[in-house]
Simulated assay, not measured.
Amino acid sequence: MNRLHYSLAEIPPVLLVFLALLLLFQGTWIFLDARKRGRFPWLWGLWGITSVPGPLLIYWLVVIRTDMKRHSKK
């Protein structure tokens, strides 16, 4: 039988708690940083709690990197 798919009962609870905390931390950090920069904080924050590390990488490319380029030109 193909063992590439796991049921929720087979995943250790410690791993689930770690993943939940990681998603919460990532979403909160993205939300607070986007609010500081004035860049749609609710959108970024909600998207930040959906997966790891995709939203964080895209946020870095779209928001942080463009802000760094903008400030270095001044």
Results as ranks from 00 to 15, higher is better:
A9Q: 12
I30D: 04
A20N: 03
F31T: 02
L4D: 02
I49W: 02
I30G: 05
L21G: 11
T28F: 12
Y59A: 07
L22N: 10
P12F: 02
L21M: 12
W29A: 09
P41D: 06
R37Q: 12
T66P: 03
L8H: 05
I49Q: 04
L19M: 13
W42T: 06
T28G: 11
I64D: 02
L16Y: 03
M68R: 14
A20E: 00
R35M: 09
W42M: 09
P13I: 14
T28Y: 14
E10K: 14
D33L: 14
L23F: 04
F40C: 00
F31D: 03
L15R: 13
G48Q: 03
S72F: 07
R35Y: 09
L57D: 01
K36Y: 03
R39F: 08
M1L: 09
T28D: 01
P13A: 11
V52I: 15
G48N: 05
L15E: 08
V52N: 13
F31M: 02
P53S: 02
W60F: 11
K69M: 10
F18P: 00
D33M: 10
T28E: 02
R65I: 00
K69W: 03
F25T: 14
G45H: 01
A20V: 07
G38R: 04
S51P: 01
S7H: 10
S72D: 13
V14M: 10
L32G: 06
V63N: 10
D33W: 06
L56Y: 09
N2A: 10
I11N: 03
Y59L: 08
I64V: 13
L61T: 00
L56S: 12
R65L: 08
T28V: 13
P55Q: 03
R37A: 14
R35N: 13
N2Q: 09
